[in-house]
Design a protein around this nucleic acid. Sequence first.
DNA 1: CTTGAAAATCGCTTTAC
DNA 2: GTAAAGCGATTTTCAAG
Lengths: 168, 168
Amino acid sequence: MPNQPRKPQNASVSPNRPVDLDRLDREILAVLAHDGRATYQEVSQQVRLSANAVADRIRRLRAQGVIRGYRADLDLARTGRTLTALSDVNLRDGVEHRGFEASLEQLPQVVGAVHVTGEYDYQLRILCTGTEELEAVVETLKQDHGVRELRSRIVLREVELDPTRALA
Amino acid sequence: MPNQPRKPQNASVSPNRPVDLDRLDREILAVLAHDGRATYQEVSQQVRLSANAVADRIRRLRAQGVIRGYRADLDLARTGRTLTALSDVNLRDGVEHRGFEASLEQLPQVVGAVHVTGEYDYQLRILCTGTEELEAVVETLKQDHGVRELRSRIVLREVELDPTRALA
DNA sequence: CTTGAAAATCGCTTTAC
DNA sequence: GTAAAGCGATTTTCAAG
C-alpha cells in the first residue's frame, strides 16, 4: 500500500506503562488484526469515524507500540512442512540460555521458542516435512545444542480463534 | 493501501498437494513476512525483479493459499495483558472436543488452542493482566468447560525468531 | 474530531518488447 | 520476464471550523 508510515518498525516507548485503549481503539485494532492491509477509509467505515481521525489513531497506536507492525500470514503447511511439534526441553547443566537461543538460528525448523517456568526450560515449536525430519532435529538438539531432556507432542489441529478476542 | 486484492481472504486450493517455491518466491515471502504492507515496488527492489513480475507472483502465492492474508502484529502486553501462560489441559470423560473448543469463545483470555497428542488433549495460550485473572480463568475452565486436569506454565520470555526461517 | 483540498504514490491494466 | 503509459484510488499533509 502507499504512503503508510511503515518505518520506524519499532517504536521506543517507556516500558511497563500500560496503554489504555477506548472502544474506538479496540475496534480499529480488531479490523487491522483481521485485515492488516485495510485502508484508512475501509477502517473508518467499520468504526464510524472519519478516515483522518482513524489515521491519527493508527499512527498513535503504532508509536505507542501497540501495533508492532504488519506481517503476511503464511501457511507453511502448503509448502510441505505439514508436521508441527511442540517440544518441551531441558538444558544440560552449564549450558547458557542465551547461547542456546542463539544456536537455534541454525535450525530453520524451529519457528518458535518460549522460556517458561516449571519442569522444562523452553518450549519449542518445530515445523517439519515429516517424522524423519523431526527425528533429525531432535537428535541435533541433543547432540549440538545442549539439550538434556526433550519431550515432543504432535499438533493434530490448531483451533481457530479470533485474534481480536483479547482486546475485550 | 489502494487497489490490492484483499478479498478473497481465503483461497480454496486442492488440499494436500504441496506447493513448491523457487528462490524468488521464498525471497518475496520473506519480505512480506517482515513487512506485510510492503508495496510491489519495494518488494521488487529487494528481490531484483520488476514490480509487475513481483505482483504476479504475490497474486499466485495468495491464490495458492501460501499467503493466507495480512495481519497487524499487536503487542497485547502494552495494553496491560502482561502475563502469558501455557496451559496443558485434559478434558473430562464424555466432553466433546468441538464443544469444548466452541466454549472457549467465551474466554477472551484464551488466545490460542492446539489439539495435541500425548498426555494432554490441548495446550492453551492464556493472556492475563495478572495472577488473579489467571486463577479465575483456570477455575472457570474446570467448572464450566469440562476441564479435568490443568497444568500451567508461565512464559518468562518469547525468543525472537525470524518467521522467515522455515522457508529455507 | 470533522471537512475539504492539494500533491504524491500506488495498484491495475494495457501496450509494447 | 521487462519497460512504459494511463487511469482510478489512496495516503499524506495542510488548512479551517
